[in-house]
């Protein structure tokens, strides 16, 4: 029993990390149909900027704020200078642009920062909380709570604000949205800004657990993308569920099956799920018009 609880706690921790990355993927996709492979780099920038600004003597909360602002600016710049000029290009070309951007950002990070690993102090101390025989880090709870809070905020934004409704309209039908006066360009820019900000927050919160370095984004993007697709891309709830599921699968596979093949087990299950539910758990099937 204690063992099961420990696996669940591990799965939730890792899963919440994936979920935060997946949320960024899903938001941009919803507004623009683009899969942004630079999302992992947003996460990296959040963590690394905080580390280096704090090292320069700035108090940690302020450093974190600076990191979020800087990453958001990066996200907006990515949209303005790389995505916007390529408007109308095919999805694969847009993906290639974001892959180019991720190589570029990684390259910049290793020059501006360095190529070593870094950590940040946890928010609520490092002493584990004992729960039915399982030891849980307070920081894991912080990450979980933040993922929940971000989903709630996103839902409130989409549901309660006019701008949010514009996002929904854009997601549903870009042309129709433009006809009823939605500035779809601004909506897409906004989605890049918010996704970058979510990525940065994620990066800051997970660094005390997972550490960070200039190339931390690649694997996170991979797992986050898989999580978003498992949940059904475009659905915020799906992103969180997808992320947590992958985290749990990895933990259970490592605990009960074989730690050698835990990533393989996770991807095998993703394959099986996608083959039986081709639009992901929470996704809606698209109707093709001829």
């Amino acid at each position: 029993m204690a063992e099961l609880l420990q696996f669940i706690s591990s799965g939730l921790t890792v899963g919440a990390i994936y979920a935060l990355v997946a949320l960024g993927f899903t938001l941009i996709y919803k507004a623009s149909d683009i899969i942004n492979f630079a999302q992992g780099e947003f996460v990296m920038l959040g963590g690394m900027t905080t580390v280096f600004v704090a090292m320069a003597g700035v108090p940690l909360p302020l450093a974190a704020l600076i990191a979020v602002v800087a990453t958001t600016a990066t996200g907006l710049a990515l949209h303005r200078f790389a995505i916007e000029p390529a408007r109308g290009a095919s999805p694969v070309v847009l993906i290639m642009i974001t892959i180019g951007a991720s190589i570029f950002l990684r390259g910049v990070a290793q020059i501006v920062f360095d190529r070593r690993f870094h950590s940040l102090p946890p928010l609520l101390g490092a002493d584990p909380i004992q729960l039915g025989g399982a030891a849980i880090l307070p920081q894991s709870l912080v990450v979980l709570a933040s993922a929940t809070a971000i989903v709630t905020l996103l839902w409130l934004f989409v549901d309660r604000t006019l701008l949010g409704k514009a996002v929904i309209a854009t997601a549903a039908n870009r042309l129709a949205a433009r006809l009823i006066g939605v500035d779809t360009r601004r909506v897409v820019a906004l989605s890049f800004g918010i996704s970058a900000a979510i990525g940065a927050v994620a990066g800051i919160l997970i660094t005390p657990i997972a550490l960070t370095s200039y190339d931390a984004g690649t694997l996170l993007a991979l797992k986050g993308f898989a999580a978003a697709m498992l949940g059904g891309i475009g659905s915020a709830a799906g992103a969180v569920v997808g992320g947590v599921l992958i985290g749990l699968m990895e933990a259970f596979a490592a605990g009960y099956v074989s730690s050698n093949y835990k990533d393989a087990v996770a991807f095998l299950i993703i394959l099986v799920v996608l083959i039986s539910i081709p639009q992901g758990l929470f996704g809606r099937a698209k109707v093709e018009r001829v």
Binding site: P85, A89, V93, I97, A101, F104, G107, Q110
Partner: peptide
């Protein structure tokens, strides 16, 4: 040297933006 990756990323982006097909 150290700017290899920066330039590679930049060139991929520029190619894709301007020669999108």
């Amino acid at each position: 040297h150290d700017y290899e990756q920066v330039l590679l990323g930049l060139i991929v982006m520029v190619f894709m933006i301007f020669l999108r097909r």
